[in-house]
Write a protein that binds this DNA or RNA. Structure first.
Lengths: 120, 120
DNA sequence: TCGAACGCTCACATTGATGTGAGGGTCAAC
DNA sequence: GTTGACCCTCACATCAATGTGAGCGTTCGA
């Protein structure tokens, strides 16, 4: 598919899709005429990217994280350098902290909302 | 306490503390000489703010969310306008989506890491 | 074959969270 | 009373994620 369809299916603007490519997050093929050609799997990948961006991860980190999540893995165990593993471990704890923070706040907001609803 | 100590205890730069104030997230007293005076509770509040910012919430939203989380509540049920409640509900689902996304990725990263460790 | 709809690159603008520095008060210790 | 470590405001800089638009080629249906 071309960039317009991908944009519609993911909700990301064309501009943004080109930006993700520039950041090395996606790597579309090119048609003879220079148009970008995306396969279906890119839809999920872009939604993944948008989710992570929205959750506060910078593209720099997303780029490192993504290849470890796909099956078949883009980064195999032999390619994993110690520094990369260390980075992933650091990100893992960072993400866990985010989850904890968000969970606390989600629960508190939910509690507040039910309290408000009961009150009226 | 003054801004320097708060900065040390929270890890937020002085600049940032003034910025949070400008955004209406904290509201320190002022001493006679113009210095900002923070109470102890502000330490937790700032850490809360930083956690939420790091998790991708903009200050605009944090400002709406914070008063509902403290006890005693800064926003009582009578003050809760329908629009505010709607906003909170929207944020609640947004936060839940973030949590889901982060959880998926945390699990996948953890899985990858254990696989790598076993492999060596 | 013409025009609308789409694609490309390039480049400048904006927004939100931050850094940095200038220019200038306050205060405690020496 | 001077010095060093604070504080103040103001303003400009930066960085990442986006928007916007110009200038130009491509595709496709009427």
């Amino acid at each position: 598919m071309r960039i317009g369809e991908l944009s519609e299916r993911t909700g990301a603007s064309r501009r943004l899709l080109r930006y993700y490519e520039e950041q090395g997050l996606i790597a579309p093929e090119r048609c003879a005429n220079g148009y970008r050609a995306y396969d279906d799997a890119t839809v999920d990948r872009v939604m993944q990217i948008r989710g992570l961006l929205d959750a506060g991860l910078p593209t720099r980190i997303i780029k490192q994280v993504l290849p470890c999540l796909s099956k078949p893995r883009a980064i195999h165990f032999e390619d994993a350098t110690p520094e990369m593993i260390a980075t992933l471990e650091r990100e893992l704890t960072g993400i866990s902290a985010r989850i904890a923070c968000l969970t606390r706040n989600r629960d508190a907001i939910a509690e507040y909302l039910t309290a408000v609803r009961v009150d009226r």
